[in-house]
Write a protein that binds this DNA or RNA. Structure first.
Lengths: 209, 209
DNA sequence: GCATGAACGGAACGGCCGCGTCCGTTCGGA
DNA sequence: TCCGAACGGACGCGGCCGTTCCGTTCATGC
């Protein structure tokens, strides 16, 4: 009586994996608003196959995004485990900037209001946010980070670095983000002769808040 | 025989000015891709009026953009006239970041490839570019700016600051760009214990190159 | 006032693009 | 060899945008 779970056909499995990989690339390049056709073409598959396997384009893209967030979580945890608080912060800022430079979808997630995402995305981002808060707090406690910089600043600065690379032709400016991050880190570490202008807003929400 | 140039009707003139002002606001908020309807609504005018007066949406937007570029030229010239080379550079970077934060269209122009613009836009941008080169060169000569930073870096950093503000709700993060610029300036002035990673690309083009 | 035509507004048109479906075809597995 | 699961991509639909067109309004000059 138990319907034997009838295992996935071989070609079907291959195309499913190809679709996931294609979606990963497509989201990285075009952002969260990739078209279904772009993904299917890249996987050398008809759009029908995409919809049969994933229900909707958004479902597939969401899967990809969740993966990317989980990956950043791993990086954040590693930075938190760094014995040197400053190194932990710096390496995280660098890693986040690199990841967002390489993955436009991730950058868009970080830059968007949390409210536009579904519950499970928000869940993941909450725990990532906590890790970032911890990384920042630890650097503060160790006296290695200007007092007037908050964890939200760190997130914003990672986005700033990304835009640096994105605005120019991707090919030529692959490493522009590294230059921006390097300059920012010098500024972050300095004791801060001048306090930062403006107030670090506490009521601002981003994909990470 | 000379057709007397029949002066502009009063209401017509009023609506023309309203359209220009509305376009300025709309481009600042929505960027160079504003829709004709957005501009017309903002001016409380029918779209027909826009087309009768300006021929096409793009013509109007281009006018607005040229204005914005000319304004930056003025600022650049002023910075160049500052007796202190460092002050000149810093004030220009701040002003450019402020202008781009307040005007999305201007930021898009800076971030785009020059080739997508018409000849007269390119002409304006060439002379602005020269001024920026001068500002940077002067700071270099005075030994007040890290050697490994180029004028293109300056342009890119202004964009980085902008993204900082843009990614969060405009309202709440009005001054985020100021924080980013302040941190960057600290990094720029420092003698640079560590040389910047990557190479400053010389073959990169932006709206300003 | 009144006549005139310049100026107006916005509905309508055509083109484009993206999502998701549907059905004739292909092909893996038994 | 046969069956039905899986495929692909043309197609229908809806939404958006630039631009045009024409019936209406109204500023202007007499």
């Amino acid at each position: 009586m138990s319907t034997p779970p009838r295992q996935e056909r071989a070609d079907s499995r291959r195309k499913r994996l190809r679709l996931i990989e294609a979606a990963r690339e497509a989201v990285a390049i075009h952002g969260l608003a990739v078209t279904a056709a772009e993904i299917a073409d890249r996987a050398e598959v008809g759009v029908g196959t995409l919809y049969r396997r994933f229900g909707s384009k958004d479902a597939l893209v969401k899967d990809i995004l969740l993966d990317a967030i989980a990956e950043m979580q791993t990086v954040a945890d590693a930075s938190l485990a760094d014995p040197d608080p400053w190194n932990g912060l710096a390496s995280f800022l660098i890693a986040l900037s690199r990841a967002q430079s390489a993955n436009r979808g991730l950058a868009e997630f970080t830059a968007s209001e949390a409210s536009v995402f579904s519950d499970d995305v928000r869940e993941h981002s909450v725990s990532l946010r906590c890790a970032i808060q911890d990384i920042t707090a630890r650097a503060h406690l160790a006296g290695m980070l200007r007092d007037d910089v908050t964890w939200r600043d760190i997130v914003v600065l990672s986005l700033a670095s990304v835009s640096a690379g994105e605005c120019l032709g991707v090919r030529a400016a692959n490493d522009q983000w590294q230059r921006t991050v390097a300059l920012l880190l010098e500024g972050l570490r300095a004791p801060g002769a001048q306090p930062l202008p403006g107030q670090s807003p506490t009521d601002v929400f981003s994909g990470l808040a």
